[in-house]
């Protein structure tokens, strides 16, 4: 909010650069993991996915949190606004992802185990 940060000029800019640094570090970690793909992370499976992919997704959600809270200034908004935006998205996206991925796994099983010729 305009009047909140007006007298804390220095700290607002400082926080922006701090968040930029955090985002950069997380991105670099992702890129390094993506290039080297440590074997133990690829071979460990949790809930249908490699541990490495879970790490990527968690880091991505963390980056999304940083961008929304610091850059889009969600931390300074009222609780009502924050909840009406964030909870709606989180709930609907979780639902959508669950339905579509569960269906994708099912169709893969039909391809793999059903009497369907596809490799010709």
């Amino acid at each position: 909010m305009a009047h909140d940060s007006a007298h804390t000029n220095q700290s607002a800019t400082k926080r922006i650069w701090y968040v930029f640094m955090l985002l950069s570090v997380v991105t670099i970690v992702e890129v390094v993991l993506g290039i080297f793909k440590p074997a133990f992370l690829v071979q460990t499976d949790i809930l249908y996915m490699h541990l490495l992919n879970w790490i990527f997704i968690i880091l991505t959600v963390y980056k999304a949190y940083l961008i929304t809270w610091a850059f889009m200034h969600m931390e300074g908004e009222k609780k009502g606004l924050r909840r009406s935006v964030v909870w709606t998205i989180v709930f609907l996206v979780c639902y959508l992802v669950f339905i579509l991925l569960a269906e994708g796994v099912y169709i893969h099983d039909v391809f793999a185990n059903g009497f369907v010729t596809w490799n010709f």
Binding site: Y48, V97, L100, L101, E103, G104, V105, I107, H108, F111
Partner: peptide
């Protein structure tokens, strides 16, 4: 993601 899991 759906297509990806289908052709995993």
């Amino acid at each position: 993601g759906f297509s990806r899991f289908k052709f995993i």
